[in-house]
Design a binder for these strands. Structure first.
Lengths: 186, 186, 186, 186
DNA sequence: CCTTAAACGAGACGGTACGTCACGTCTTTCA
DNA sequence: TGAAAGACGTGACGTACCGTCTCGTTTAAGG
């Protein structure tokens, strides 16, 4: 049903959607409220997206919400630390935390975010290509697993266990992951 | 508001709650449906629990849903593999997947499950105490981090990226985690 | 679905219904407007009546809208003239005209009004019993037909042809009907 | 707004309008459905007719829906009986019943049908001219009243009271009307 | 055994949001 | 120029649950 183009005020709609999600959480996010804030009629939303999830997925995809740049620090460890820091912020900052918390159990949303995590992060992210160029990783290293470990541990720690992620925790985490993935190379 | 005792048919209520959660997901779980299935009046539920989340948390806590025993395999690697297998089942089986998917972003539920994960799994679980007794881990090893990595990676892999967890994945995962945590001991 | 009793503010609801019908006509009569004017929630209306027609029928039946007394004028002709006058007023006055105009093609409404016209008017109305007592009509006279002719002609003249009914027209009408029905007696 | 000519597919539009009216009744008759069935765009309809009623009135007028021929039976009574029979069919047959039931309370429609009833039927219909030629009626007889009585009684009997019109009823009706109107001549 | 208070069943109610339908207006694109 | 195409704001639809409330009725304990 999302036919590429979208209604005239797509941007306002996406913004309203993400803002309201941030403010009231997934359960408190209503189509009517989105419509009102975007100065668009409810029916217009239903004309383009058939469900709350579909709209939300489009909004997430259509915005740069999950995007993050990671500068080249010169070493894999430094880069991963930077990634871990960025990730912990993603999971902590209200706007993104609300989105990510809504993912589990909602296939349409999972599709949108997993496209980001598995695709963007694993294959396309320069961190791993740079590490291979530097000789810090072999080309066949388990980049997927690194992402699973890094992102997963953070997710679990922050969102499920209610923990916090200070510098020390991030360092421990990165070192542990790094040791693990390097050992497998041998 | 949950005054220890609870209404006369607590068990029927908890069962109905978890069953309906499994069947229709968190969003499709309604107080009225629970009341009807448990042959209890809606008012009775409101008398004892002030919200859907509170009731659900009580149901999770009051059942052995997240419990799992892990036999002594003789080695830390074997034990962790067993834990990973159990965890992947928890995250996969509909009844538990539905509960766990509902956790992020819902403090009341997070409280109930994190009690299990951080408490039960990290400190009380025999896997780690046995490993220390065997000399495979020092007493000050980072059991928390192990759980974060293991559970987190699985969670992330299964629920957020829509991946699957076969034996090979679990083995790679456990080895990676194990190497990491052992290296830190040195 | 109309279970005898009805909601707490039945009277307000009936009044609101008939008033709004009068003001905006059948097509402009909305459940939401009724609810608002009766200070009752929309859902309450749906709880008791399953459709606009059912509610309207109940309102018509529950009010004395179509009731009219006819004094004893001493002669059948006089009585019929009085009835015709009353009827022409019923068909003319906004409140009743709106109701009656909505009847054709709507079984639920037809039931409510035909109960009045055929039942009340034909059999129970003292005009005919008095006429028989006076000897102006035989007991087997065609009271039904008289009502059909009188009411029908008025209806047709006023509502379908957009005519008006002055004293002269009423007199002509009654005389014609009277002659007809008397002739059949012979 | 109806500028004489009309759009290119007037006939399809009129047919679709009357068919849909017959099928779903006035309340279920929608502009969009008419447009779709006539393979015409909604906008086109609005260009030519400003409302559902106006379109419907045009359709009724533009079709021979209410037309009916009455053969010369040789006597006024016979002719009136034939007219009554035809009328009872008009009021009974779905296609016409739906139209006529929609008339009361809708001026635009009333205009269209009353043109037929008062004009066509009363003044122009050969039944009355023939009766005058035969000497059965004086030229100043109350043809209008006859139509009111005949059509009105049938309408009332069939549509408002839910009665049926068999031969006996029609005969009684015609006789009664005839007696009435003849008596007035004297 | 009775009584008394807590718990419960029953159900009407005001309320929010749902997702759908048709309305009538508008602009843009074609023939 | 008239029609086709279709997006849009608008209002009402009828439904599902929500959470609250008022009533009686049960139930289980204690005097």
């Amino acid at each position: 049903m999302p036919t590429g183009a979208g209604p005239r005020r797509v941007q306002e709609i996406f913004t309203a959607t993400l803002d309201l999600l941030t403010e009231h959480g997934y359960d408190g996010l209503t189509i009517e409220a989105i419509a009102q804030r975007a100065s668009v009629h409810k029916t217009t939303l239903y004309r383009w997206w058939s469900s709350k999830d579909e709209l939300l997925a489009a909004a997430v995809t259509g915005s740069a919400l999950l995007e993050f740049p990671v500068a080249d620090t010169g070493s894999l460890r430094g880069d991963l630390l930077a990634v871990a820091t960025r990730l912990s912020r993603l999971l902590t900052r209200p706007a993104t935390a609300a989105v990510l918390a809504a993912v589990p159990g909602r296939p349409l949303l999972a599709e949108a975010t997993s496209a980001f995590f598995t695709g963007r992060l694993t294959r396309d992210h320069p961190v791993f290509t740079r590490a291979v160029e530097r000789g810090e990783l072999t080309a066949d290293s388990d980049a997927d697993l690194v992402v699973d470990l890094l992102a997963g541990a953070l997710w679990f720690h922050l969102l499920l266990c209610g923990g916090s992620a200070d510098r020390r925790y991030l360092a421990r985490l990165v070192d542990s992951v790094l040791t693990g993935v390097r050992a497998r190379r041998a």
